Amino acid sequence: MTTLCAAIERQTAHALACGALHPIETAHTFIDDGGMRFSVRVAENLARKEALRLTPQTSAAPGPKPPRDPFLPYEPDLFVGDLSSTHVALLNKFNVIDRHLLIVTRRYEPQEALLDAADFAALITVLREIDGLGFYNGGAAAGASQPHKHLQMVPLPLAGDAPHAAPLEALLGGAQAVHGARPIANVPGLAFRHAFARLDLGAGIGTAEDAAHAALDCYRALLDAACVPAIDVGGLAHQGAPYNLLVTRRWMLVVPRTTECVEGIPVNSLGFAGSFFVRDAAQLQTLARLGPMTALERVSVPRLRGA
């Protein structure tokens, strides 16, 4: 059987050759702040991406056109493989990080719906083959650019010459359990509201199904601890507030959000892992002036008093 890694490499080569994949070329630098070495990628040329996004969709109907769902149908040239009966793996068309994978529901589900066992089963199928960072941008204010439910995964380490697989891991050794919620912890050094837990999603926990249920239970506990309520929308559980989710084989983090950008710089889940993307040198200067940790605080909910 073809491994997922091999399928990603094969499809990446094909998508580059046929022009379906449009990597964004970046220069790479670091900013040290708050005990973390943040990885910052600076775009060298966004013109092609902007031109493609602004290309109008052909339609006989007059008037404004609704945004097209890029996953229904998905581009066959970006298709990596079937993950389950409910999810497929696609290449990220405009990738900043190599081998950036999208984990997409076959049928339309809203991005604001809570993740379920099927979502985690698909994610764990990926994480058991690739030691990566899975993440979910829960809503537009958390950095989601598409309304169709999709998780994402990028391989670790986030920067090959950094001391940690993800810069956030420099702070995780001091995580302190919250009284009354044994598996839930706060991370010293993070001044914004969050909830953290260690877990084992590798083969040591049992079957992939066992791992998916363990991950789902942990996720719901973290949402509760971070004060992200579940609400019912037409019989489907939705998030009551925007949030970011980060998942590796070893830990999980939830961060509630208030806004997508700080001084024009968009922040999604990767920012909380310690990885930023800026459009140009001016945004890099702004981020360096603010400090990445302050940028994260300004798009997040203040930490609970006494937490």
Rank of each mutant, 00 (worst) to 15 (best):
F79C: 06
Q239R: 05
K149E: 04
R107K: 14
V104W: 02
T258P: 03
L101H: 02
P23F: 11
A226P: 04
D200I: 06
T259R: 15
P229W: 07
D131Q: 07
R68Q: 15
H150N: 09
E129L: 12
L190A: 10
P188F: 12
L253R: 05
L52I: 12
P266T: 03
H14K: 05
E50W: 05
R53E: 13
H22R: 15
L222C: 07
T125S: 10
F120Y: 11
G306A: 15
A122M: 04
V247H: 00
A122T: 12
D77C: 13
A197W: 04
E169W: 12
A241I: 05
Q146H: 04
P155L: 08
A7S: 15
I24C: 10
L172F: 12
L245G: 03
M153D: 07
T248H: 09
P73F: 05
C5F: 01
R99N: 14
L287V: 07
V104F: 04
V80I: 12
E260L: 13
G306W: 11
L270W: 02
G132E: 04
H194T: 03
R198Q: 09
I97S: 06
D69V: 13
A159L: 13
P256G: 04
H213D: 03
M153H: 08
A140M: 10
F120Q: 06
A20S: 13
A203F: 09
V301M: 10
T26E: 05
T105W: 00
R257D: 06
Q239G: 09
A185Q: 09
R37P: 05
A118Q: 15
Y74M: 03
